[in-house]
Design a protein around this nucleic acid. Sequence first.
DNA 1: GAATTGTCTGAAAACGTTTGCACTGCATTT
DNA 2: AAATGCAGTGCAAACGTTTTCAGACAATTC
Lengths: 336, 336
Amino acid sequence: MGFVTLKDVAKVAGVSYATVSRALSGSPEIGENTRKRVIRICEEMGYTPNAVARSMVMKRTNILGLIVTSLNNPFMSEMTAHIEIYARQCGYNLMVCNSSYDRELEKEVFSLLVSRKVDGVIMIPVGNESYDALKTLTAQVPTVFIGENMQDLPENYVSVDNAAGMQHATEYLYGLGHRKILYLGARENSMTHKLRVGGYLTACERLGIAPHVLNNTSPRSSFEVGYALADAYFAGTHDETAVLCAADTLAIGVIKAAYERGVRIPEDISLMGFDNLSFSALPPIDLTTVNQPKQALAAAAVDMLLNRIKNPDAPYTKTILSPSVVERSSCRRTDA
Amino acid sequence: MGFVTLKDVAKVAGVSYATVSRALSGSPEIGENTRKRVIRICEEMGYTPNAVARSMVMKRTNILGLIVTSLNNPFMSEMTAHIEIYARQCGYNLMVCNSSYDRELEKEVFSLLVSRKVDGVIMIPVGNESYDALKTLTAQVPTVFIGENMQDLPENYVSVDNAAGMQHATEYLYGLGHRKILYLGARENSMTHKLRVGGYLTACERLGIAPHVLNNTSPRSSFEVGYALADAYFAGTHDETAVLCAADTLAIGVIKAAYERGVRIPEDISLMGFDNLSFSALPPIDLTTVNQPKQALAAAAVDMLLNRIKNPDAPYTKTILSPSVVERSSCRRTDA
DNA sequence: GAATTGTCTGAAAACGTTTGCACTGCATTT
DNA sequence: AAATGCAGTGCAAACGTTTTCAGACAATTC
């Protein structure tokens, strides 16, 4: 399809194409009458500026890259939605890539984005060690990470305060009278999850109650894992009055196991999650959980990235946001 | 950040930059020894081709635009995931935009994508009338629509066969012994929904059972609407043994209303949805529903778009995929 | 009326590629 | 031995912008 270019407009308007450019860019060094005339002709001819050509000379694309592990995950897709909307308000478009939990693919799409000359990259990495593998890549374009994975590495990232969140959750259950609280789904292979279980343990110590942790040795926090752990747990003798899950997804599995075992939630046992995924609010689930402020995280990530683009040599920064308990119907006061 | 360009490589290698370009593009008109040497030097210098410059001269970006109403919607985010993955396999990156159910925004982001010279656009439009408003835009870049909204308009689209899907659903319930089936959530303001309720009515007539339709006058199929309709329905006298919802989201609301009214699913009444959203498979919901083959829809949309890019003047085409019933636990055989 | 200022416009370079065309040198053909 | 062909390489144009620099012209100042 043949497009109208600056030159075409210039020819019709009888001016140089530099003048057309200036008329459209709102440059002050142009006569008001010529500007109006040129703009009118642009509209008449249906001129659309070519962003590619502009990027070429401006040496910036106004495009941000986003790499997520999977858009099928509700946390990721909600984050993506917020990032896209906020970035666009800041004048940037978003190029989205799935890494599909594959480290090789993650590197590959990063390279693609570099090649496309995106101005910056926001990334939810596959795992903790990502940084090492991506060292050479992040050197090529400003990057910010989402999630606490990078915590002990000198990189930019935004995250929720996972330890504090789980501490609040524990305290919340304690406040409802619970003294025996099971922590379900601790993982050693994720910084995020280490911090979460740490928050639980801290709270237990502070409150003077005995911790009880059920570990998840798989690399993900799926509801299958939650089901398996809870099923085994309910099968044995148990005297906890509340189950605190390391993630909402796990809690879904717990609900199923509880139902099958005839354990009622919240009558027999209280259940709490972490993340506040969209489905947790659905009436049949209605899970009390800890909210990750997704919109705020998204905005913080974009802001941080934009700052970094402006000032690439600034020292690394991090932004930690506070999560908060959202009360729903899966927890109940206890006297036990 | 200063990057290595073709010229830099050429200087070091002692060849013209045309030669470097040819070495990398796999052109046959170049000596094997020079090619190897040049490629080695490229790697040593960490050369990354500049996709923007390439787009400039090639007059194509290898970028596809995707406009969805909201990435927060699980149907959209799943579709987006599949489209991104498949498009990348075809050598295209994806630029994603939310229209946020706003027709003005929809036009705006479409223009943005045109300006960015994406090679094509896939769009899940805000509403039926989109086509008229976007006529001038779709003329500027190959576009395919997802969803049956455009059905009576000459455009490219892929969709699931909504009428057949709902017909199957009705027949499925009939097969379980249901003779009184409520259709909940019919909408007049959406082609998709007109077709769905049409499928239900067709099936009723064919099976010789009396239809009973509850209309939804709001512009969306939210679970609040499902709740309100079901709550009113359960409050009155009702003798249906099954509720067939126009969308999974509506069914969520029905579950809540049923629970509150002491109506058990599926013991007292069977419940069926349409769409097979990801949350419908969650154990606490486990909704029998009609599956939209999202991966196939995504692939069909990308294929169609790529064909159109190759052959912009071909006549409009449509692809209609068959939905299928997915059996879960919200429906049960009845003798009533 | 000449010099000076200031406002507006045009010419042209630059951005980093791809590719058509011309050229070189060597091997093959006649 | 000359002519032809061909593989390999370089030159330069082109893609559509932005922006620097210089120039033109009018308005102001002396």
